[in-house]
Design a protein around this nucleic acid. Structure first.
Lengths: 245, 245
DNA sequence: CAGTGGTCTAGACCACAGG
DNA sequence: CTGTGGTCTAGACCACTGA
């Protein structure tokens, strides 16, 4: 009994997605045991190593718990509520995974000359054009996260004086630039809601807010996007899962 | 030319450690190119797959940048200043990696009956004994992080009414319990320095502080340790690196 | 003991970069 | 074109768990 897998994408990734889906829709119930690696490799018609790569990735995210000599189990603690690393930048997904309705409001988009910190972070001379994108994320109509992103105009392709404000950062870089993000460095701080920010996020002045500063780099270590976010953790708890090692 | 590798540990892990060391001591200089996978596999006398596992792990941490068809490069942006995920709980390492002198002061250690939140988080009936460990981390003599940890007394082995306050959480669980940590869930919040905490961290009252709540689980999804930390990000910036996927 | 996951190998083939 | 990293396989052997 071997399923039909499309070759274009890697086998590992397809297996990964299918298993993820089965966990999500509870074909494999929380706390339950997965078929053994050999059984899965027979079901999918791929080698055991391929199955293992897919499983390892899910285990690293905390979705699966692997017990040597015993079996692979679905982590019952992560149902519905949670997120892994991506939580630091894929805010839309984060909000959805926590069971809220997502809405994204595009507050502003404009070309500006780079200056100060932005110019430094993006390694672009002062005065060169960058596109600023300011967005507000809502969870069930509560404003939760205010995000400003900056992309040097030179990385954006032709046509696009317009950017679709509903897209995730991943999608934006994929659709509007020719470069690919390889990794990101984020710094996390606690701050107080300044006037303007307090108003937008509907907070009392000087309420504590999380501040996330993130810069994305491509494979050549060139900064592609930088951004600054203010995150109201009283509406949406920022939770991260990580396997011990 | 094949190096002598000890068999007891896994080959992959040994290769990983050696490469990590070479990056750290700049045998492989920042921005430079690593020997190819085939060359490394010859040098270490192991298969290419083994080399690849070691490299993949380093790449996932952002230490290496892999360029298809070209080579593997040392990420020059991470020299000295930075940390990956472990930064959320291995505070000693975090402080060291940022170039400060670490000191840990044991403020308090005592057995208490579990109550409220702690009892819930640790899934232990109210009134059962837990050990509370309160510690203060210093970076170059500045108090930076205040940590309270709770471990159910039943997981601690015999002799140990005494816990060495200088150890990392990983070392504590390894040395004093029979269980092994499989994964952790952390939640990150922004808070204001309350009276007592402000005093200990030498902050003005109501300064913003990061609050990290972490619970560690074993492979059977049983909570082993929980803890609450207050982190002064003005002294030590909390930076996280993550590969895009 | 049988069944599970963990490590490792040798080798094939592919996809991509750069001369 | 050559050399690099990326994917995949088949198979061996080991280490651990639970009956």
């Amino acid at each position: 009994m071997s399923l039909e897998l499309i070759r274009p994408k890697t086998l590992t990734e397809q297996v990964n997605l299918i298993l993820r889906e089965r966990i999500h829709d509870k074909t494999y119930p929380p706390g339950g045991r997965l078929p053994s690696e050999v059984e899965l490799s027979e079901e999918f018609g791929v080698s055991r190593s391929t199955i293992r790569s897919a499983l390892s990735r899910l285990a690293a995210e905390g979705l699966l718990l692997r017990k040597h000599g015993n079996g692979t189990y679905i982590n019952s603690r992560l149902q519905g509520v949670n997120t892994n690393w991506g939580g630091l930048w894929e805010f839309g997904e984060l909000i959805e995974k926590n069971g809220y309705q997502v809405a994204i409001k595009l507050l502003n988009i404009e070309k500006k000359p780079a200056k100060g910190n932005i110019s430094l972070e993006l390694n672009v001379p002062e005065g060169e054009e960058v596109v600023e994108l300011q967005r507000l994320f809502f969870a069930d109509d509560h404003p939760v996260i205010l995000v400003k992103n900056f992309i040097p105009a030179k990385y954006l392709m032709n046509l696009s004086n317009h950017i679709d404000g509903q897209l995730s950062l991943r999608e934006i870089t994929e659709q509007y630039t020719r470069v690919r993000i390889a990794y990101a460095i984020s710094s996390v701080r606690a701050t107080l809601a300044r006037d303007e920010i307090a108003v937008i996020l509907e907070k009392n002045p000087d309420s504590p807010l999380l501040n996330l500063e993130i810069t994305f780099y491509d494979i050549n270590n060139i900064p592609i996007v930088t951004g600054s976010s203010y995150y109201d953790d009283t509406v949406l708890n920022l939770r991260l899962v990580q396997a011990w090692q």
